[in-house]
C-alpha cells in the first residue's frame, strides 16, 4: 500500500456511486470517447480527481477532462464537452 500521507489518484470505479446519481445506466462500463485523443474506454478506466467537489474524470492517455461533475446544494452539474460520445449499452457479456 502507499506510504502514509502519500496520495493516490483513483479511477472511475470510485466515482460509480456519483455516476449513478447522474446517469440512468451504469456509466462505469460505458464506452466513452475522449475529445482530446480519440481513445475509447469505459469511464471506470478514467483517472479521478476532486471527488470532494464532484468528480473530474480525465483521460489516462492525454489528461483531457472527459467527464466533469460539480456537486452543489442544488444538484449535480454535468459537463461532457470532453467526450465525443458516451455509449449507454448494456454491459457486454464477456
Amino acid at each position: 500500500m502507499s506510504a502514509e500521507g502519500e496520495r493516490s489518484t483513483l479511477d472511475g470505479n470510485a466515482a460509480g456511486g456519483l455516476l449513478r446519481e447522474v446517469f440512468a445506466f451504469d456509466a462505469t462500463v460505458a464506452p466513452t470517447t475522449c475529445v482530446g485523443c480519440g481513445r475509447t474506454r469505459p469511464m471506470a478506466e478514467l483517472m479521478l480527481y476532486a471527488i470532494e467537489l464532484g468528480a473530474i474524470l480525465r483521460c489516462p492517455s492525454c489528461d483531457q477532462p472527459v467527464v466533469r461533475i460539480g456537486r452543489t446544494s442544488r444538484g449535480l452539474w454535468l459537463d461532457l464537452r470532453g467526450a465525443t460520445t458516451v455509449v449507454a449499452a448494456d454491459p457486454a457479456t464477456p
Binding site: 500500500m1 502507499s2 493516490s8
Partner: peptide, 30 residues
C-alpha cells in the same frame, strides 16, 4: 494502490496479455 496497478498493467501488456481483458481498480488515500 495506483502505482502498483499501473506498473502491473503495463507489465501485463508487455507480456502479451490482451488489454481489453485487463480490468483495473485503483484505490488508496485521497
Amino acid at each position: 494502490p495506483t502505482p502498483m496497478v499501473e506498473a502491473v498493467a503495463n507489465a501485463l501488456v508487455g507480456l502479451g496479455y490482451e488489454p481489453a481483458r485487463i480490468r483495473t481498480e485503483r484505490f488508496g488515500p485521497t
